[in-house]
Amino acid sequence: MLLEYPTVERELFELNTQDPTVKPLATSFNSTEDHLNPDISDESVLGFRVGNLRFLLAANIFCEIVDQNKVSPLPNVQPWFSGVLNLRGDIVPIIDLHILLADGSTPLKNRHLLAIDKGKKTVAFWIDGYPQMLSPHFTSASAPDDLPDVLRQAITDYSRQDQHLWLTLSLDKLFKALSVHTVQDKD
């Protein structure tokens, strides 16, 4: 059972950093955006969408879409902590950023679990649609007013590309901001 993960799907999203000639996502990717930048280089970045927010991750970070049926929920934790999952022997916490948005919107049906990084540092997020590759050309932008405080603490940079605001997410900062609320508040 341990080895039953969606191999095919996972490979699609593995970014091969060793070989610069491989551009894994450019052709095989089912992007939520219609256009794909054909000139994806090593510097390109990975973006994903949660609700109406778009987040950026460095492209050299290992990402994969994982089977969401394997999530084991935990009792007595904050709602944004959806539970844990066994990814090749590592316990991976799953974070629902949608709950942190607190904008009252309901998440879409076709959510995916995006696992970021490898080994003990792996974290999974619920994302809307699929992640997408972006060219590294951004213009700088400022923080939106309605950004929840926890998220604001986790964002290191705001930038804009094609009408969309992209938030650069720092996992360290996110979890630092979240760490104060790991246990469910008692009523």
Binding site: K70, S72, G83, N86, G89, I91, K121, T122, V123, V183
Partner: peptide, 22 residues
């Protein structure tokens, strides 16, 4: 619970069961 969530109050950690679930 990995690098980021080292300790969750009330939990020692997690274990992987024989069926692969946690």
């Amino acid at each position: 619970f990995g690098h980021y969530l080292k300790k969750i109050p009330g939990y020692i950690g997690a274990a992987i069961m024989g069926d692969g679930a946690v």
